[in-house]
């Protein structure tokens, strides 16, 4: 189990909405804004905003994550976009 998988949800939470560079197995590198980390598999979901106004979403599997380095803290606009991403549709929120 790698270091990333050993983190707790509160530690993963610190990366949300930040821009990070993830190095993964086989020297693969991914950069993007963190949407979430799956607490079950430790997979990290990154969002990139493309020049044509569209988005691309990349998931890096938890077992393949080697390092996660913060590149920038993000801004309000990115945060606003990420906060609502995939949240449309019925059931906006579940309460425990």
């Amino acid at each position: 189990m790698n270091e990333w998988m050993k983190k707790t949800p509160l530690e993963w939470q610190d990366y949300i909405y930040k821009e990070v560079r993830v190095t993964a197995s086989e020297k693969k590198e991914y950069k993007g804004w963190v949407l979430t980390t799956d607490p079950v598999s430790a997979s990290i979901v990154l969002v990139n905003f493309l020049e044509d106004g569209s988005m691309s979403v990349t998931g890096v599997m938890g077992h393949a994550v080697q390092t996660v380095e913060t590149v920038s803290d993000g801004d309000r606009r990115v945060r606003e976009k990420l906060m609502h991403l995939f949240m449309s549709g019925d059931c906006q929120a579940y309460s425990p």
């Binding site: 949800p9 979430t36 799956d38 979403v57 579940y94």
Partner: peptide, 16 residues
């Protein structure tokens, strides 16, 4: 706090 963070992160992952 940890449980709440876990729930939010999991829900977002499932939605993705």
């Amino acid at each position: 706090q940890e449980q709440r963070a876990r729930a939010v992160q999991r829900e977002r992952y499932l939605r993705s």
